[in-house]
């Protein structure tokens, strides 16, 4: 996984970068399966590796394929990145150990969902129960966000076609 990311940093052919991005998403999905998050793995494989890659390829088709080679390693960003990384690793030293059942995250509200979820919603998959029932309003908000983004994309992409038709130059391109 790390190798894939390093290749993404190094490569300049955008087509290869996008493909490696897809591979990275797929690896992330397998990692989610290892972490017991099967629903998330499904979504990541379908949406992250599938739809994102298609979107990026579409954008490449409309723009250019090659990145301009700057040649030199950017020093200041590298210093910033390393500093932030060291700070973050210092921060993880206070984290509860991986898989610890007594970590704060596991003793607050999650046991309630696990115990009462079947009784209150009669859905055996707790992730679905929380997503659709307990936190249904959040999911509605998510749908709103996706809808707004869709409107934004349509406005951005159709504007150009409208102005072109107004000027009477190209016709319907797409």
């Amino acid at each position: 996984m790390t190798i894939t990311v390093v290749m993404v940093v190094r490569l300049h052919n955008l087509f290869a970068v996008v493909m490696l991005g897809g591979i990275y998403s797929l690896l992330a999905a397998t990692m989610f399966v290892l972490f017991d998050a099967v629903d998330v793995a499904f979504t990541e494989a379908a949406v992250g590796a599938g739809v994102s890659t298609v979107l990026l390829l579409g954008a490449l088709a409309l723009t250019s394929r090659e990145e301009k080679d700057t040649g030199k390693l950017a020093v200041i960003p590298l210093i910033i990145v390393i500093t932030v990384g060291i700070a973050l690793i210092y921060g993880t030293l206070d984290m509860p150990l991986y898989g610890d059942p007594n970590a704060p995250i596991h003793v607050h509200v999650a046991p309630y969902y696990l115990e009462r979820g079947m009784v209150e919603t009669s859905v055996p998959n707790i992730v679905t129960a929380v997503l659709a029932s307990y936190r249904g309003f959040d999911t509605l908000g998510e749908v709103c966000v996706v809808f707004t983004a869709g409107i934004g994309v349509l406005m951005l992409l159709s504007r150009e076609r409208l102005t072109r038709r107004y000027r009477g130059v190209g016709g319907d391109k797409r």
Partner: peptide, 22 residues
């Protein structure tokens, strides 16, 4: 395993694709 992060991340993945498209 704790279902709560899974729910949050399911939402986040979909929103992430929306922002990517935009």
């Amino acid at each position: 395993s704790n279902p709560l992060p899974h729910v949050l991340i399911l939402t986040a993945i979909v929103v992430g694709v929306a922002t990517l498209a935009l």
